[in-house]
Each structure stands twice: as C-alpha cells, then as structure tokens.
Amino acid sequence: MKLHTLAHSRTGDKGDTSNISIIAYRAEDYPRLCEQLTAERVAEFFAGLLGPGAAPVRRYELPHVHALNFVLPGILRGGVTRSLALDAHGKCLGSALLDLELTPAKGR
C-alpha cells in the first residue's frame, strides 16, 4: 500500500534544507507511520538527491496532530537562490515521498 493512501504532506524550505511533513489522515494509522517511516528509510528514498556528504536526516514527532516532520539538510544543493534545479524550493519532494510502499500493519 502506498503512503499516499494513508497520509498527506507539505514541503518547506529554509536555506538549503527541506522539511517534509507526513500527516496521517486517521489517528489510528499514526503508530504504523512512526514504525515504518524511520529517518533512515526517508534518507534512503532520497539517497540520489542527498549526495554522500549530506548531514543525517532528522525526524520529529507531533503526536497530537498525528504527524511526522522530516528535516533533510543539504537536499536543496545551495538553496533556492543558487540552485539550478527546476524546482529549486524542493516543493515537490513531499509528493514524491508519498509513493513510498508500506508493509501491512501487524495483527493485533
């Protein structure tokens, strides 16, 4: 199942760092997102964009709004002002992340 069916997302930029929110539509899916969407998994998903020297991806939890916030330093390669990228802000990154495949929830 794609992450897109369980969660929505918005991407922000500051300097050459992006932050990507992943917000569960339903509170009951939040634990599953917490379990499967590790900082390492997100870093792996964007490995081709982050480059080898990038600082580690950080993950923050916002339990009352059942959301995760991923911070990706260096992914904008110089930031909006210098980047040659078509999407220099990295605004489309969150939508791409929603393509991530989730494994079925564990039985309870």
């Binding site: 997302s9 930029d13 929110s21 916002l62 709004v65």
Partner: peptide, 26 residues
C-alpha cells in the same frame, strides 16, 4: 496541520526574535 509544520524544523524550538515557540504539543 500542514501549515503548522511548514518550514519548521524542531517543532519544540521554533526560533523567532521574540520567543522560542514550542509547537510540539499543538
């Protein structure tokens, strides 16, 4: 919720010139 997290890094320490705001429990 989308706007709460927009351009925020650590939600417990959102720095402005006026205050260190904590959005982590919003």
């Amino acid at each position: 919720t989308e706007q709460l997290i927009y351009e925020v890094h650590d939600p417990a320490a959102y720095l402005t010139p006026d205050v260190t705001a904590d959005f982590s429990q919003v």
